[in-house]
Structures are given as C-alpha cells and as structure tokens.
Design a protein around this nucleic acid. Sequence first.
DNA 1: CCCCTATGCAATATATACATTACATTTGTT
DNA 2: AACAAATGTAATGTATATATTGCATAGGGG
Lengths: 64, 64
Amino acid sequence: MKNKVKFTRMEQKMTQEQLARRVRVTRQTIGLIEKGEYNPTLQLCVAIAKVLGKTLDDLFWEVE
Amino acid sequence: MKNKVKFTRMEQKMTQEQLARRVRVTRQTIGLIEKGEYNPTLQLCVAIAKVLGKTLDDLFWEVE
DNA sequence: CCCCTATGCAATATATACATTACATTTGTT
DNA sequence: AACAAATGTAATGTATATATTGCATAGGGG
C-alpha cells in the first residue's frame, strides 16, 4: 500500500465521489491516487488531508 | 512564505544545486519550489524531505 | 435474482510539472 | 572595485497529472 487515503476515506464512510467533489478533482483521480498509480501534486495532497482531517504525514509519509 | 525548503536547506548550508542533484531535479525546479511558484509532486516532496532530514509536515504543512 | 450505488478501467484530450539552455542579477570575499 | 559562486529568470520543449466520456464489474439490499 502506498498511502492511507482509501483506508481513511472508508473509515469516514465517504465515497470516492464525495471526496473528489470536495477537493475538486474527478472520481477517477481519487481512484488512481488510492491505488498508488500516480503521483499527486502537493496542493491536492494538502486538500485531501484537510478534507479527511489528517496531515500530510498521516496520509502520505512512509507508507510503503 | 509557502514552505520551509529554503530555510531548511540554508540551515544545512546546502546550495540549491546540491539539493537538486540529490533529489534528481534541476536547480531551477528547486528555486521555483522555494519561491512557492509551483506545485511539486508528492514524490519530489518526499525526496526533498528525506534529503533534508525532515518530514512532509515539517516542510510543507500549513506554512502559508 | 434484480436494482442501484460505488468502484474499476480504458481511450483520448488538456493543463501543468519539470527539463534544457542561456543569460542576468545578487551576494560574499579579497 | 573586481571576481566567483549562488541564485533569479525567461523561452521553449517534453513528460505526466488530471479531465472527460463511456462502459464494465463488484457488492449490498430489496
């Protein structure tokens, strides 16, 4: 696993689409980030972290 | 100030070029990131943090 | 089983991160 | 002041993050 986005999102009973809307990207983008299949930009990481009530380190640091 | 890369790099008496080499980007990329003029990818942020002995949160979280 | 919602996935298009090159400017040192 | 190293900056090119559309699949509740 490359990051904790999926785990944290599900913990909060949020769908990919809801998260995507709140950070203003598409559902596909969230899906690919969760799979670790691509390399999001810092701003998007920060936006995701804020919506999920976490920090960058919580979601993206040393997860592999 | 948008992030603490410049501060931390100078604290360690490292030049932009040295940091750039170690994270395998160009000096220009480091310069622009330090100025907050662009939005680096997560992998690059992680690489910079590791070279500087910091975490993502240390360098990029809530600095504005 | 049948819906319905959430997620996966693929093709193509667009925006932008980053490279490359080159030159200007700043800053420190003598 | 003069020199050198570090940094700023601008133009153009390339790679890739993200959008868009559309359809397939998975899984839970009736």
